[in-house]
Every structure is written in structure tokens, then in C-alpha cells.
Amino acid sequence: MSVQRDDAAQSAYEQFEDLPMRVGVGQIKELSDEHLQFAAQVGIEDVLISPFDPHDEYDLTLTTGEVWTLEELTALRERVEAAGLRLYGLETLPYNLYRILIDDNPQEKIDVVKESLKNIGRAGIPVQGYSGHPPTGVSRTAPKVLRGGAKATAFDPELVDEAILEIRGGGEAQALDPEEVGSRVIETDRELTEEAMWETYELFLQEVIPVAEEYGVTLGLHPTDPPIEQIAGVPLLFRNFENHKRAMELYPSPNHGIKLGMGCWSEMGEDLVEVIKRFGGENIVYVHYRDVVGTAETGFYETFIDDPESNFDEYEVMKTLYEEGFTGVMTPDHVPDLPNEKEWPAGGFRGRAFTIGYLRGMLKAIRSEAGIDD
């Protein structure tokens, strides 16, 4: 079947085919002209947008829980293009994956995802990410103070059953009672066993991937953050390499790969270079570029991308991506909160500008080593 795209949507879709590995920027909460201007100013051409807000705190670019229409997706792409940028993809589904996995009758939610994927493909948007986070989103304990008074999120496994903190903008966090977390996550009377959730996930893949293939959309799976066995009694499936391998093998497809959340893999204690080599560049849809100090097992905190104490060598990892043939987009993901910035969850404009510049500098050096002039 040939996807029914208008000429502008087809042109937008085709322009991604021959692009090299590059730096982009992600977007949480409602897309603003300021965010688009920022991307253009720091030399970014690719934008990703996340329509999911577990805290119901922000105005969002797309409404969750309902089918995304062709008209609104086309308008969104055209708005990004009007700023001289490209809409590379959407970071999350109309439903957080865990809302589907814990539902007694998930088919209705799966059908919403399928209809949305059809419209995403028709609108000329090539990538759709989805998250292995529980519905409460990324969970942390108390923040860590970094150089110059910057703040970063942190996780202490000894405290996770006593006080879970949710990421908020401007270095702020809100403490949650574990029972409250459980009531927000668990919306079913059935026992949430890991194998039952795997069965529902396989159903999800069997229903969704054929639609993605038919409409030319590539799906990317993001790992759980933090990558631990459970939160509030809910098993977290995407917490290690073995489970990601299982996820990819349940329904192999060129339209399904991993969203390489480097911070999450670093939290697992995995060697990022080996992870990239094991999956291969063609199976990595796009990259969240960040690092931490420590692991989920021992406790960790997020940090600046150039921190010599962090778990991996940021240049070696990027060079491995390049050598493995990765050709997608790398975004800063979380960055430390700098003082007086509240415009963005998990770090603001200045933190992202620093990280984007650092990533672009490394990429330029790697391309120069390979004899490629920008």
C-alpha cells in the first residue's frame, strides 16, 4: 500500500532518508515560538515533541488519551517547518505504554494508538517514540547540588519506598506518598505480574507494528527510569539488556527499535559502547544523550555531560554510534537545572544550550577525523 500523503507531507518524509547522524532537541510541554527560536539559534534543525505529562502540570502540544488527527499533526509539522526546522518525531504515544499494560481491557487504547499512527504517517512524521516509564513518569529521591550551584536529579534506592520525588521544572521536586503513587499507577483489580504484562506488551506489538510498517513510521522503545524491578508494586519491564532484547525479538521489524536513553543504560551499570555494538546503529532509532554518576543499584545522580566522574566517556560513545552507522538524532534529554530557570522540566534553556554545543563540537571532531567536512 502507498501511504496517502499530500506532496508537502511526502517531501517532508523523504528528506530524512539520507541525513547523517546529528544533534536535535526534544520538547516537553506546549511547543512555543521561543522553543523553536532557541533551536534555530543553537544550530539545531531537528525537533522532537513529547505530548505526555504525568503530572498534568503543563499545556501540551497534543492531547493525550484520544486519536491525534491528521489535521493537527500536519499543522504541527508545518509550524516547525515554518521556523526552518524539521519535525523528526513524537516522543510518546497518546497513552503512556503502562496505561495499556495495566488495563483490564487494553484494546480500546491500542486502537487509539493505531489510528494515531496512521495519521502520523500520513502527516509525513517519520518517528514515534514510546516510553517504558510507569504512568508517574521518571521517579527520583532528593536532588544533588553540582558545580556552581546547579541542581540535578538523583536516586537513592534505600529511600524509594519512603519518598518518591517527581521531576519538576527549575530544580523543584514534589514528594509523593507511596500509597498515592500506587493509586495513580494501579487502575486495575487484577494482579500485576511481570509475565501478564509481557503478554499484554506482545499483544500491543502484534497490533501496532504492522500499522507502523504500513504507514512508514518507526517506533522507538525508551527504557525504564530508574531501571529497577518495580515501583509501587508495578513491575518495570524495560530495566535491563535482556528485557530489551526480548522486546525486540517478540516482533522483529525494521520499523521497531530502541530509543537509546543513555542515562538509563548508564543507570543500569551497562557499558554504553557494548550496548551500542550489541544493538547496532540501524536498530537505534534516536538517542537521549545524558550521563549519571553511580547506578540504580547503588544510587546515582545526573550530571553535566562533561563531568569526568560520570559513568561513560561521552566522546567514545558518540564515536561508536558513528562507527556503527547510526544516522538518527541525538537530543540532550535531561540536563542540570541552572539557577533561575523554570521554563522546562528537567533543565532549562541554558543547560540545554551548553549540552547541545558540547555534542555538536564532539560530532564535528568525529566527522573531521573521518575526513568529512561540514
Rank of each mutant, 00 (worst) to 15 (best):
N243M: 00
G171A: 09
I44L: 07
S11R: 15
I228D: 01
G233M: 03
V127L: 06
S50E: 14
A154N: 11
R77T: 11
E191L: 11
T69L: 05
L236D: 01
K364P: 00
D313S: 13
L101A: 07
A173N: 04
P339H: 01
V160Q: 06
N283S: 14
R5E: 01
A175G: 06
L250A: 11
K109G: 09
R86P: 05
A365I: 06
G124H: 04
A9N: 04
V23L: 02
E158I: 09
W265R: 08
I372M: 12
Q128A: 09
P252D: 11
A123I: 07
V329L: 03
L192Y: 07
T295E: 08
S11V: 12
K259L: 14
T298Q: 08
P134L: 09
V329I: 13
I356P: 05
V287S: 05
K277A: 10
S2H: 13
A123H: 08
N283L: 08
G371E: 03
F279Q: 01
P106F: 12
V47E: 06
I231K: 02
E91Q: 14
V217C: 04
K118W: 00
T63W: 08
E45D: 14
E343C: 00
L70A: 12
P308Q: 06
T320R: 03
E158Y: 01
P308L: 05
G328L: 07
P134Y: 12
G328W: 03
S32V: 06
T188Q: 04
S310M: 15
G24P: 10
A232R: 00
K259S: 10
P20G: 10
D307Q: 09
P332S: 04
E17T: 11
E71V: 10
E180I: 13
G121T: 03
